[in-house]
Every structure is written in structure tokens, then in C-alpha cells.
Amino acid sequence: MSNIITAEHITKRFSAHTALDDVSVEIPRGSVYGLLGPNGAGKTTLIRTINRITLPDEGRVLFDGKPITQQDIFRIGYLPEERGLYRKMKVGEQALFLAQLKGLSHHEALIRLKEWFTRFGIEEWWNKKVEDLSKGMAQKIQFIVTVLHKPELLIFDEPFSGFDPINANLLKEEILRLRDEGATVIFSTHNMASVEEICDHITLINKSHNILSGKVDDIRRAHGGNIFSVQYKGDGKALIERISGVCEIIAHEESTTGYSSLKVHIERNEDVRSVVALINDTVEMRQFSETIPSMNDIFIRAVNGTL
């Protein structure tokens, strides 16, 4: 599979900090590629570098194997994190305007827009002014405008922020549908659930560095071992104190009424028995089982530097 985007050794410095430090990513054609990372990790800067809004200090970006040019920009659909529309314009008029800028004829744009508006059930918004729309509504419009001209590469910066669960789901389905139609999708997020559901590849960026990159399945397999979930009743604080020396706490949820739950990573197999013993000794243990880690667990461990 060829790479639609190859970013090589990208470094970008701003006056106060370095946003990207020697970051390389390869984005295979036809994939749904997740850019993960905590806030301020450098995801948006990487995206802006890929679509030529920001000029990197070092490194280069290849589009289809060739250094990216202004012309390639028109093959990209980009939904920025900071969403904006002309506030005084009517929704339909504005969507038509933006669609035509992307190269669609007025006629074609109108047909496709009607189709999308019907699919999202928002036909009655056509003559509303943008300033009268809610944030989520405006975001839908922007999503439509971004994908309308069927670009080869779609880049969404935090597409799920501002959406309720129902609409987030709708968006997920649309992203998968676009992938099936042949588009490559890059999106940044810190919503881990969505990563598991729709991404085939991810890159995890933390503190300006690419700390984890690859296929979701491979990553899971490689980093999936030795994660255990525990259910217990009793003094959680005392428990944590006793076991934190031998294992890594990934998640801990205390409950005063029912069972508390705990998720730990035990590095060495030999330690499993001693951990069980420690838990048994401190609290009333109800369950101890090995689990398949979620991307969320991997994310947290990677950011903590314990992966």
C-alpha cells in the first residue's frame, strides 16, 4: 500500500516552545489514520504542516511521493479545529460558495448539498443565517462542506468535539463510509473510543515527539499483555499504597456502595502472584482477571512513559 502522505523529520519551533521535534509519519492510502495525543502535544501543528498552512523549520512533506505543492491542497479536504463560517451569510448560500471554491460547478454543488442536507435531516436550515445556528449545527455544515468535493485526503482536526453522542456516531459512520468510497482520512482526537472503532492506524504524539506509531491491531498485540482488572470491596487507598510498588495503576474507580474496580499492569509474570496476595491481604477481592487492553489504556501508559 502506498503512502498518500509522508512527513519526514518535521521540526517546528515557535518562540516559546518547540511544537514538533523530528516527527515522522507515514499515512497509507485508504486508511483511517488517528493522530492521538494530549492537549498541546503538537497534533494541530502537524496537521497544518501537512496541508501547507504552516511552513516547517526542518523536514519535508511528501504527497503521493512528491514534495507537496499548492496544487495538491485542492486534493485535500480540511476541517480545522477552530471552526468558522461567515456569520452573516445564509447556510445554503455559504455552503454553495465554499463548494464552488473547491471547484464544483454551481449545479453540481447544489445537487450534492441537497443530498447531504437530506441525509443529515437539516433541509430546513438552508435559509437560516449561520449566526443563528448552534455550535454543533455549524459544525455539521462545515463537515459537509469539507467532504463535498470528494477529495482524496480528508483531514479532520478534533472532529468529535462539540458533538453529542448521537451526532458523534453519525459522524463516525460518515467517516467510515468515506473511507469505503476510497478516501484517506486523517483525524486528530483524544477520544479514545472513536480510535478503536474506526482507526486502522495511529500515531501517538506527546510533548512534540512521535512516541508510538503503527497499525492499531499491531500496537494492541505488542502492548496488550499483562493487564489485569480487579474488583474488590474495602479500603482503596490502603490497597493502592501497598501494590503501587510492584505494579502500575492504569485506572482506579472507587465505589462506596458496590464493588470498586482497578486496572493494573504487571510487568513481570512472576509478580502476578505477589500482587494477588497483596490485594487479597488488604481488601476483599471479588474478581481478578486478565483483560485485553483498550487503546485508552495504551494511550495512558504511553503518555506516562511506562509502555
Binding site: 496541508n51 498552512i53 499548492q70 491542497i73 485542492f74 485535500i76 480540511y78 480545522p80 477552530e82 471552526r83 468558522g84 463560517l85 461567515y86 456569520r87 465554499l98 471554491l101 473547491k102 462545515q142 462542506v145
Partner: peptide, 13 residues
């Protein structure tokens, strides 16, 4: 300030 700019810049020269 209306943030439309990023959309425009990624669309037209």
C-alpha cells in the same frame, strides 16, 4: 477573528 480564515487558506490561494 471569525476563524473562517483557516478554511479559506486551505481552499484558495
Amino acid at each position: 477573528s471569525s476563524r473562517i480564515l483557516e478554511v479559506m487558506v486551505s481552499t484558495v490561494k
